[in-house]
Amino acid sequence: MSLLHQIALSCIPGIGSILARNLISYCGSPEEVFVTKKGHLSKVPGIGPKTLELIRNHTAFERAERELCFIEKYKIQALFLTDNAYPKRLKNCFDAPVMLYFKGSADLNTGKVISIVGTRKSTEYGKDICRELLAGLKKHNPLIISGLAYGIDFLAHKEALKNSMSTIGIMAHGLDRIYPQQHRSIAEKMITDGGLLTEFMSGTVPDRENFPKRNRIIAGLADVTIVVEANIKGGALITADLANSYNRDVFAYPGRINDEYSSGCNHLIKTNRANLITKLADLEYILGWTGSQTQSATNQQLSLAIDLSAEEKIIADVLLNKGSIIVDELAILTGFPQSKLAAHILGMEMKGVLIGMPGKVYKLA
């Protein structure tokens, strides 16, 4: 599949994530989008005369060629929605970006991914919580996601690196710049042990409207979003709402009722949009991360001694081999339709063989 056509599709004005998905689904590939007759394209939901003309506008290819030169020069990984390396958790979100640009070393599909967000004007209370949280998470070795902004974001990245955990900053601009500039040194460290990720091409500046788009990636990449400290109108609450819309777990640390920078967290908890967290054990209990995080192959084989059907054994064998796996990938590897797979998963959960985790991830009990 042509990377030039993939990038070009993302360059067309007015074609967002959802419409691009529709076009690819209808035409079969990005290349076909550009050669399919107008009469056929007009049948795609959301495509009007103006968009049809834009698809035929070859300036998209000119822009894509410049971007291709940029990513090749700076060794940036371009990830299209259908690529195997595209983050699977994000792919499950209805508005996932068609293109992602990544510079770093982290595995975007690693077993545990946590987003940590909060106010840019963090207090000592919030800073202490963040340090304690990251130190405790070290034993689980998750990938830490945040937005490289001032305050809680910066501290989450800093403490993740301090505790030898990979961390990725999600950018609201292209990878030809760092914003804020003061965070360049930590961003460079993150590229070595984590990375920088964006949906925006080089030359894109950090305009205000880009940050809510950035926040959906922060929410969609992770199993769980943790709000450490936030104002009721802060961007952290937008991220929390997005995580809820993706059916992901959200946690929030409570604060004093008259504290401006805890008002957002208190509101999330009060409105049942976030689980209350006061210590790491709260998160471990709700996510099922309690107890030993490793299990011997012998014990796993013993757990499979329960009477399983032939198809359930196929599922169990995949889980035994993979450890933990997102449901979409499980469907591909087993060859079962989603409806049949869902029924088997429910039955195996009731037998105590299988455990469901955030982000539609499953593993053996």
Score class of each variant (00 low, 15 high):
residue 2 S to K: 14
residue 7 I to N: 03
residue 21 R to P: 00
residue 24 I to L: 12
residue 26 Y to A: 07
residue 27 C to N: 08
residue 27 C to T: 09
residue 29 S to A: 04
residue 32 E to P: 01
residue 32 E to I: 06
residue 32 E to Y: 12
residue 40 H to P: 00
residue 40 H to C: 12
residue 42 S to D: 13
residue 43 K to T: 11
residue 48 G to P: 03
residue 52 L to W: 05
residue 56 R to D: 14
residue 59 T to Q: 13
residue 60 A to D: 08
residue 71 I to S: 06
residue 76 I to A: 10
residue 77 Q to P: 02
residue 86 Y to P: 03
residue 88 K to S: 01
residue 91 K to C: 00
residue 93 C to L: 13
residue 94 F to D: 12
residue 106 A to I: 08
residue 106 A to C: 05
residue 107 D to T: 07
residue 109 N to D: 15
residue 111 G to C: 08
residue 114 I to S: 09
residue 119 T to N: 02
residue 122 S to Y: 04
residue 122 S to V: 11
residue 124 E to M: 11
residue 125 Y to Q: 06
residue 126 G to D: 02
residue 129 I to M: 06
residue 137 L to Q: 02
residue 145 I to Y: 03
residue 146 S to W: 02
residue 150 Y to T: 08
residue 151 G to W: 05
residue 155 L to E: 09
residue 161 L to Q: 06
residue 162 K to P: 04
residue 162 K to A: 07
residue 163 N to S: 04
residue 166 S to Q: 15
residue 172 A to H: 05
residue 177 R to P: 00
residue 179 Y to A: 03
residue 184 R to Y: 06
residue 186 I to F: 09
residue 188 E to G: 00
residue 192 T to R: 10
residue 193 D to R: 09
residue 196 L to E: 10
residue 206 P to R: 03
residue 209 E to T: 10
residue 212 P to Q: 06
residue 214 R to T: 06
residue 220 G to R: 08
residue 221 L to W: 09
residue 223 D to I: 11
residue 224 V to N: 13
residue 224 V to D: 09
residue 228 V to R: 01
residue 231 N to Y: 11
residue 233 K to L: 08
residue 233 K to E: 14
residue 234 G to I: 04
residue 238 I to R: 00
residue 241 D to Q: 15
residue 247 N to Y: 11
residue 250 V to H: 01
residue 251 F to N: 08
residue 256 R to L: 15
residue 260 E to T: 08
residue 263 S to P: 01
residue 268 L to C: 09
residue 269 I to N: 00
residue 270 K to D: 07
residue 271 T to C: 03
residue 271 T to A: 05
residue 286 I to Q: 14
residue 293 Q to I: 14
residue 296 S to K: 07
residue 297 A to V: 13
residue 298 T to L: 10
residue 309 S to E: 09
residue 310 A to W: 08
residue 312 E to P: 10
residue 313 K to I: 10
residue 314 I to P: 05
residue 315 I to P: 01
residue 315 I to A: 07
residue 315 I to G: 07
residue 320 L to N: 06
residue 320 L to E: 00
residue 321 N to M: 15
residue 322 K to R: 15
residue 328 D to Q: 15
residue 329 E to M: 11
residue 335 G to F: 11
residue 336 F to R: 15
residue 338 Q to S: 14
residue 339 S to L: 01
residue 351 K to M: 10
residue 355 I to W: 12
residue 357 M to H: 13
residue 361 V to P: 05
residue 362 Y to E: 04
residue 363 K to S: 15
